[in-house]
Amino acid sequence: MTVLLAATAAALFAIGTYLILQRQLSRIIIGLGLITHGANLLLITSGRRGRAPLVGEADPSLMSDPLPQALALTAIVITFAVTTLLLALAYRSWLLTSDDDVEDDVGDRSVARGTGPDHELRDQMESMVAGEDEPVET
């Protein structure tokens, strides 16, 4: 049983990781959901299994360990809240850009293009590039 749960957690992690590496926000959010499920499942698996841990229901030695369940519940609530915030941001992003892709970083692009402060260096680069072909505008 533990092996089955561990394998399920592993599968959730694998699929989640694949989805997070996509460019569409909706896939990333679904991927995050899967990864957090995998983590919560692992948390549940870390305790002893058994009967419901209610006083009088069963002999204490047969009861399951209630602590990981409480921890998983807390973790689920937290990731639920953060995922909601993320969905709100994704909606905002869709309103602003009307697409679902994660944008490139503006600063990174300007550094990559060489439009930084080092004008001499930039001019040198441009004169070098101009000899061969036009710099590509991303």
Partner: peptide, 11 residues
């Protein structure tokens, strides 16, 4: 999520 995973394993 990795933190929860670490917690689960340590527990």
């Amino acid at each position: 999520s990795l933190f929860i995973t670490a917690l689960a394993l340590i527990y």
